[in-house]
Simulated scan of single mutants.
Amino acid sequence: MVERQLPSEEARALFALLRDVIEREIRPTAAAEEDAGHFPREVFALLSEAGLLGLPYPAEYGGGDQGYELYLQVLEELSAARLTVGLGVSVHTLACHALAGFGTKEQRAEHLPAMLGGGLLGAYCLSEPTSGSDAASLRTRAVRDGDGWELTGTKSWITHGGVADFYTVLARTGGDGARGISAFLVPGDAPGLSAAVPERKMGMKGSPTAQLNFDGVRVADDRRIGDEGQGFAVALSALDSGRLGIAACAVGVAQAALDEALAHAAGREQFGRPIADFQGMRFLLADMATRVEAGRALYLSAARLRDAGRPFAKEAAMAKLFCTDAAMSVTTDAVQVLGGYGYTADFPVERLMREAKVLQIVEGTNQIQRMVIARQLLGPETR
């Protein structure tokens, strides 16, 4: 168990509650449910009831009033137990970001309490079949229709697609490019909204990822978030914070793999002694542990910048890049430590390795993170 430096008695009590929920409700069934492709909706309802689904948002709307430094450590612990849950909480937080940060006071009062502590689960809809990394080229369109909007188009790679209660949707309301995009809060049961069969993925089989089809979905104007044409700025703001969430999830996966590797190395004997006694193994485990600790330090440093109200986009991209690459490396090494056992589904490290891969892709591929970092360091490219 990771020893955490928590700032208050309230934070320590929160972590005691979190770890109790993990040990009772998440960890015991994680492997079997992932293998069966079971989505743990009941766990998200429990997390909502316990106040763990809206931690970084204001208490006046049902949130936990916690900073990102604490919230991200919660994500790490959840992800170490089961990435479907940890990443699901991160996605839900991302889906709430637009309304919490850009909604009117009336919009927040009407919708946020149910989203943060009322058992609802959210999803975030930016990517499309033809616009992934180039998000500003999205084609889903929202057209004014009387006192509301009509949305038509397709979103892809949507975590919680088909099971979410609400979707934060980016759609084109104007001309081409980033300035023609607006954000909308769409109910999960809106007429004309349907989900395709979930994708068949390498990992995270318990987390549904699906295309969403918007066939003339009507949305009232009071569900448009922010100004018309402000949607891309809303999206980028959410992604800066979301990248920190992915970084924390990655460290959780890496920590889980390291724990398995350490336990196996201490208990597995070859040539008359534990394999942990061999220098080659000790150095490998030392490198793994160093990557985990470095990743944790990097995401916490970025979180402190965010909590202090300082710019953190570059640091968030660095954290996402480093932590997810570290997770891929550490989980691969963990499989090597376990040898043939590590390659079987009877041991968790093969699942952790498959899950780590997706973290290098979601919420901006690691190639995009390098572009973000370089732009912050050097300015935009010249042509």
Rank of each mutant, 00 (worst) to 15 (best):
L17H: 08
P191S: 01
L99A: 02
F283K: 12
R383Y: 15
W149H: 00
A142N: 03
D277F: 10
A316P: 04
G229S: 03
F166R: 02
K357H: 09
S237F: 11
S48P: 00
S137G: 12
R304W: 12
R172M: 12
A345S: 13
M371K: 11
V197K: 03
L305I: 13
G122K: 02
A164M: 10
K357D: 07
G103E: 05
S182N: 03
A238W: 08
A233N: 11
T84H: 02
R306I: 07
R200L: 05
E260L: 04
C249L: 06
T173Y: 06
Q73T: 11
M1S: 13
L55K: 10
G117L: 00
A317I: 06
G267T: 03
R268V: 10
Q66K: 14
F166Y: 14
G280T: 13
S127Q: 10
E228P: 08
L17R: 15
A248V: 10
A233Q: 10
F312N: 04
K205S: 05
G295I: 10
G226T: 01
G216F: 02
Y341F: 14
E77L: 08
D325Q: 14
G379M: 06
K314Q: 12
E260N: 06
T84V: 15
K314W: 00
L75S: 12
G54H: 06
F271S: 01
G379C: 02
S241P: 02
R383C: 11
E10T: 12
L170D: 02
L72Q: 03
S133C: 07
L239G: 04
A135K: 09
R4Q: 07
F271A: 05
V234H: 05
A100E: 07
Q255F: 13
A142P: 11
E150R: 15
Y124W: 15
T324D: 03
C96K: 13
L262A: 02
C125T: 09
A334F: 10
G342M: 01
S241N: 06
D346F: 11
F44Y: 10
Q230Y: 15
D20R: 14
V372T: 13
I225S: 04
L298E: 09
Q360N: 13
Q73F: 06
E381V: 08
F214E: 01
R4I: 03
A178Y: 08
R291H: 15
G309D: 01
G177S: 13
L94R: 12
D259I: 09
D35M: 12
A196C: 09
L212T: 06
N366D: 08
G148T: 01
F214W: 10
V219Q: 02
